[in-house]
Simulated scan of single mutants.
Amino acid sequence: MPLDESAQGVYVIAPTPFHPDGRIDEASTDRMTEFFLEAGCDGMTILGVMGEAPKLDGAEALEISRRIIRRAGKAGIIVGVSAPGFAAMRALAHGVMEAGAAGVMIAPPSTLRTDDQIVAYYTQAVQAIGADIPFVLQDYPLLFQVQMTPGVIRRIVQALPSCVMLKHEDWPGLEKISALRGFQAEGSMRPISILCGNGGLFLDFECERGADGAMTGYAFPDMLVELVRLARAGERDRAHDLFDAHLPLIRYEQQFGVGLAVRKHVLMRRGVIASDAQRAPGGRLGQTAVAEVEYLLARLARHDARARLPALG
């Protein structure tokens, strides 16, 4: 089903599994897709920042998207289609929607500086891909260096009906969520879905501020699913207790430059992917970092059985 403003829950950000020689690992891709859906995720977001999208050529991006969409069945698959030019964006967007994607995600280029430039860019992007394709507005100023105020997000939402979701990754960003929900309550902005990223680092309070769930890629997406469920049920203390147990590993995984290596290592340890390899240029964890992650997993296992993993061989 096409993505709309009612989307909620967890749309996990999926990494792209690679063999050590850089080839896409299709078997791990299938296993990863099944794992995420069995964990209770409502959907997946692929070809995002943590999906190493810029390292794939156009044919690879379309093929892995088709593979995941086929495997996921009725689950909603959102595909990152951000590109330097609109021709490539349009080609990938049309290809994945024809394959059955729920929608696409578009990040702003780092050259945008003013509110008018931001609104104009998204207007042109919608003209390029077509107003019939639902899209996710990605707001990640820490990485893209584009500052979207609540006011400019409202302008985009009001001007472009195909904008149905905000991927909220501002930091600090709790007040932004409150401001956007305030616009919605007063009737100055139509309803949209808000899913939050940043590795889940603030998800406990983001849900309380009005977020509909998570769109992030922490290596324990089953925990994110449980946390969102507890928050929706009003079980505040249980939600925070669960979050607090995972926070040291969430924090470690959130480090710029090594976060993907940590995430892939833990997913490999959980048996989800066969290798923690990244396609070049990329890095791997050093021995000390691996030991630190293993220490955090052992500590987490005292509180959450999902972290009880066989000893590292």
Score class of each variant (00 low, 15 high):
residue 95 G to Y: 00
residue 96 V to D: 07
residue 101 A to D: 07
residue 101 A to N: 06
residue 102 A to R: 03
residue 103 G to T: 02
residue 104 V to N: 01
residue 104 V to D: 03
residue 104 V to Y: 03
residue 105 M to Y: 09
residue 106 I to G: 01
residue 108 P to L: 04
residue 111 T to I: 14
residue 112 L to Q: 13
residue 112 L to Y: 12
residue 113 R to T: 15
residue 117 Q to V: 04
residue 118 I to T: 14
residue 118 I to L: 11
residue 118 I to Q: 15
residue 120 A to C: 01
residue 120 A to P: 00
residue 123 T to Y: 01
residue 126 V to G: 00
residue 127 Q to N: 15
residue 127 Q to H: 13
residue 127 Q to V: 00
residue 128 A to I: 03
residue 130 G to N: 02
residue 132 D to W: 01
residue 132 D to Y: 02
residue 133 I to A: 00
residue 133 I to W: 00
residue 135 F to H: 00
residue 135 F to L: 10
residue 135 F to T: 00
residue 136 V to T: 06
residue 136 V to N: 03
residue 136 V to W: 02
residue 136 V to C: 07
residue 138 Q to H: 15
residue 139 D to C: 13
residue 141 P to M: 11
residue 142 L to C: 08
residue 144 F to V: 15
residue 144 F to T: 15
residue 145 Q to I: 03
residue 146 V to S: 10
residue 147 Q to M: 12
residue 147 Q to K: 11
residue 147 Q to P: 00
residue 148 M to Y: 13
residue 155 R to L: 04
residue 155 R to V: 02
residue 156 I to Q: 07
residue 157 V to E: 08
residue 157 V to A: 12
residue 160 L to V: 09
residue 160 L to R: 06
residue 161 P to H: 13
residue 161 P to R: 11
residue 161 P to D: 12
residue 161 P to M: 06
residue 165 M to F: 04
residue 165 M to E: 14
residue 168 H to S: 09
residue 169 E to C: 12
residue 170 D to L: 01
residue 171 W to D: 15
residue 172 P to G: 09
residue 172 P to F: 10
residue 174 L to C: 03
residue 175 E to P: 00
residue 175 E to N: 12
residue 175 E to M: 11
residue 178 S to G: 02
residue 178 S to V: 12
residue 179 A to Q: 15
residue 180 L to K: 09
residue 180 L to A: 08
residue 182 G to I: 10
residue 182 G to H: 09
residue 182 G to A: 05
residue 183 F to N: 03
residue 186 E to H: 03
residue 186 E to K: 10
residue 186 E to N: 05
residue 187 G to N: 11
residue 188 S to M: 05
residue 190 R to W: 11
residue 192 I to R: 05
residue 192 I to F: 13
residue 192 I to S: 07
residue 197 G to Q: 06
residue 199 G to H: 08
residue 199 G to D: 04
residue 200 G to I: 06
residue 200 G to D: 08
residue 200 G to Q: 05
residue 201 L to F: 06
residue 203 L to K: 10
residue 203 L to N: 08
residue 206 E to D: 13
residue 206 E to I: 07
residue 207 C to L: 15
residue 207 C to V: 13
residue 208 E to F: 09
residue 209 R to T: 03
